[in-house]
Design a protein around this nucleic acid. Structure first.
Lengths: 328, 328
DNA sequence: TTGTAGGCGTTATCAG
DNA sequence: CTGATAACGCCTACAA
């Protein structure tokens, strides 16, 4: 079923059908009605592919997610998808994995698909290699980075203020009389590095431990469990542990409980993300809300603005807040 | 940059360039080399839109997810996406929301985008209205339903055996001497109804409570908490609660703990999905593993087989197993 | 082995 | 207000 079939039925030309479909004004009301009748009768839908070809506009936007383990990222992708669907865009979503080569590969794929804009979710896209790939392949389309930024003319960044956020966590612990904090990090993403930086700065400016106690672990529940026992062994006087993400914190809390350590009296626990994990863990987890969902909303709005050539802010910071529950 | 540009540079016609791009055999090796040189030089990529138009093949498949709250569904979507990406397909993903009208709307959108196949994730797609929409709009393309089925020639179903699974949970409780079980359901999806059915059948066949104790709650943590206290109030002799999904179970367990009830000695708790929630909850949750991730893999394979016109099984059942942790 | 011509379904431009 | 006609970028007969 093409516009020609409709045209024949309605006794008009294809152009007129096209005009009706696109709500052009220069059509006789009667003709319009007649064409619309047949449009409905045959339940016609325009071929978006053909449209895309002639309009040079695919009405497709690309979403790249680095790691689907991060529940907030996938949720973010869906939020963005929904916002853009309202405007008739459809989203092709890829999870790129962590290595830069495959990320760059997906940027090429986005190009082939003639996407009109893209959102890259996750701070790990913030690196030189991706920057080059964007410059080479996606130079004309607006790109929004959710929790990341690259200094390119067509790139917009929406970032969480995690550095200050974690620093504030340390301060909060301090005010509660907990002055021997530790920090647990898993992957060295730009985002996590910022969290670590915030931690170290706060420890120094508050004059807490001689050296900031920073521990690295793999990103597994078991890893978080083990590193927590290690912290207690090496620093029996630790009285607060901040984990780079909630998931680690839940497992860390469990380790403390198993060691007979009272939360939060002896050791406070704080996670980051304020995810559902924080709510279902027992005790319920105090968490730094980095507003990742808001961030996705803003990213979507930013892309839409850029797509419409509206004035758009290049770099936005979203403030984090601490949500206190039972572990502090 | 089109094939014509390349053709001009290489001193050949566009058709020859096309032949090289598509690895057709009937090209002189020398010409091929020359064309490839320019292809690389200008970093040319074919326009998939134009290709789609002439080939009548979009190389796009659609994924519809009913509810992004279900972490396994979104993970499933990403698994499917990845499997199909390997074959050069790209996935447009939509979250449809729960009401049938909007689901049907998205089926129309898939049609407009000329998708070559689709995966519908979640049992809630299994209903008449969606069946009609498929028959009307997506009649020629293979459709795979993850955890659902509709009796249409182009629809394939990959289902979790949750009914037997839950029945087995009841049996397991019974064998452990827990003979007064209750079941908590939130949404009345086909999947959840099956779970409830399995529960009721097991209760009857084992001759446990006179009437199966089935409780309905909204799908919130608070709802699960409240209904759990209600169960204890109305049936103080209850000694096992099965929740339709892990998330509810975590909150229910917390309610029991807050009431001073010992888990699993006094009351056992079982969830369904064997999700990460089961692992991070404290105590760690025993859960029915409905193999939703395997299910996604199989769904992807099924779609690929159907796309390639390979012989394909119309309806596959995947067995569930119980993963015991600390709540039984 | 290579080039020419026609068409995929739509929209935009220009006559009429 | 309407209808030809020519693109959009690519692919595939068919002819050379």
């Amino acid at each position: 079923m093409t516009i020609y079939d409709i045209a024949k039925e309605a006794g008009v030309s294809a152009s007129t059908v096209s005009r009706v479909i696109n709500n052009k004004p220069e059509v006789n009301e009667e003709t319009r009605k007649r064409v619309q009748y047949y449009l409905k009768k045959y339940d016609y839908f325009p071929n978006e592919t053909a449209r895309g070809l002639v309009n040079q506009a695919s009405k497709i936007i690309g979403i790249l997610v680095d790691d689907i383990r991060t529940i907030h990222h996938t949720e973010g992708a869906y939020i963005i998808e929904r916002e853009l669907a309202k405007l008739g865009y459809c989203s092709i979503i890829f999870n790129t994995g962590v290595d830069n080569a495959s990320k760059a590969e997906y940027i090429k794929i986005l190009r082939r698909r003639r996407i009109e804009g893209a959102v890259l979710i996750g701070s790990s896209f913030q690196n030189k290699e991706i920057g080059c790939a964007i410059k080479k392949h996606l130079n004309d389309q607006p790109i929004v980075m959710a929790n990341g930024y690259l200094d390119l003319p067509n790139v917009y960044g929406v970032l969480a203020d995690e550095q200050n956020g974690v620093a504030n966590c340390v301060k909060m612990l301090y005010e509660k009389g907990h002055t021997r904090p530790a920090f647990v990090i898993d992957f060295h993403t730009p985002s996590n590095k910022l969290k670590q930086l915030g931690f170290e700065q706060a420890v120094r400016s508050l004059g807490l431990t001689e050296k900031p106690w920073v521990y690295k672990t793999e990103g597994t529940l078991q890893g978080a469990y083990d590193v927590t026992t290690q912290i207690i062994r090496e620093h029996p006087d630790v009285d607060g542990i901040i984990y780079a993400v909630d998931l680690l914190a839940t497992s860390g809390a469990r380790a403390l409980i198993d060691m007979g350590i009272a939360i939060p009296e002896q050791v406070s626990v704080i996670g980051v993300d304020n995810s559902i994990y924080a709510e279902i863990s027992n005790p319920k987890l105090t968490s730094l809300d980095n507003k990742l969902l808001d961030l996705s909303m803003v990213a979507a709005r930013t892309l839409i603005d850029a797509l419409k050539n509206r004035q758009t802010i290049k770099k936005i910071l979203i403030f984090s807040t601490i949500v206190e529950r039972e572990t502090t």
